[in-house]
Lab assay of single mutants.
Amino acid sequence: SRSVIRSIIKSSKLNIDHKDYLLDLLNDVKGSKDLKEFHKMLTAILA
């Protein structure tokens, strides 16, 4: 869910600018399909 993804971003080791950017992107995501794609992208970034 959106709140879980937000929590993953906030607890990541990324610097604050990257976190803010990803949180802004997350706010722009519409629909469950796009949310799944965003989660895939985030997982790849944090891997």
Rank of each mutant, 00 (worst) to 15 (best):
I8C: 06
R2P: 06
I8F: 04
I45A: 05
L26M: 03
E37R: 12
A47K: 11
Y21W: 09
L46C: 04
D24F: 09
K40V: 07
E37Q: 10
V29F: 05
D17C: 06
V29M: 08
E37P: 02
S32R: 10
L25S: 03
H18W: 14
T43W: 08
D34R: 09
K40Y: 05
R2M: 11
I5A: 05
S11P: 00
K33T: 10
K10A: 15
Y21G: 03
D34W: 08
M41Q: 07
E37F: 07
K10H: 08
K19P: 01
I16R: 13
T43I: 13
D20R: 14
K33V: 12
K36N: 08
D20H: 13
I8E: 05
R2C: 04
S11Y: 05
N27C: 05
S12W: 03
G31K: 06
A47Y: 05
L35I: 07
D24P: 00
V4N: 08
H39F: 15
L22F: 06
K40L: 08
I5N: 01
I8R: 05
A44G: 12
N15C: 11
V4Y: 05
G31L: 09
S32G: 08
N27G: 10
L25M: 13
L23D: 02
I5W: 01
V29N: 03
K10D: 08
L35K: 02
L46W: 02
H18I: 15
D24T: 13
D20K: 15
Y21K: 08
I5Q: 02
S32N: 10
V29E: 03
F38Q: 00
L46F: 05
L14Q: 02
N27F: 06
K13D: 12
V4A: 14
L23A: 02
D24L: 13
L26A: 01
D17P: 06
H18A: 12
I9R: 03
L23C: 06
H39I: 12
G31P: 03
I45Q: 04
K13H: 14
K33Q: 09
S1C: 14
S12Q: 02
S11E: 15
L26V: 03
E37L: 08
L46Q: 02
L26Y: 01
I8T: 05
L23K: 01
E37D: 08
V4K: 10
L42Q: 00
F38N: 00
H18P: 02
L35Q: 02
K13W: 11
I16M: 12
I5Y: 02
K10Y: 05
E37A: 12
K40R: 12
N27H: 07
D28Y: 12
T43G: 07
F38W: 03
R2Y: 06
K30H: 13
S12P: 02
D34S: 12
L23P: 00
N27D: 10
L46Y: 01
D20V: 11
D17E: 14
L42G: 00
K13M: 13
L14R: 02
D24A: 15
H18V: 15
L35P: 01
K40H: 08
I45D: 02
H18D: 12
D17F: 07
L35S: 01
T43N: 12
L35T: 02
L25K: 07
L23F: 05
V29A: 07
T43H: 08
K40N: 11
K10V: 14
T43A: 11
D17M: 11
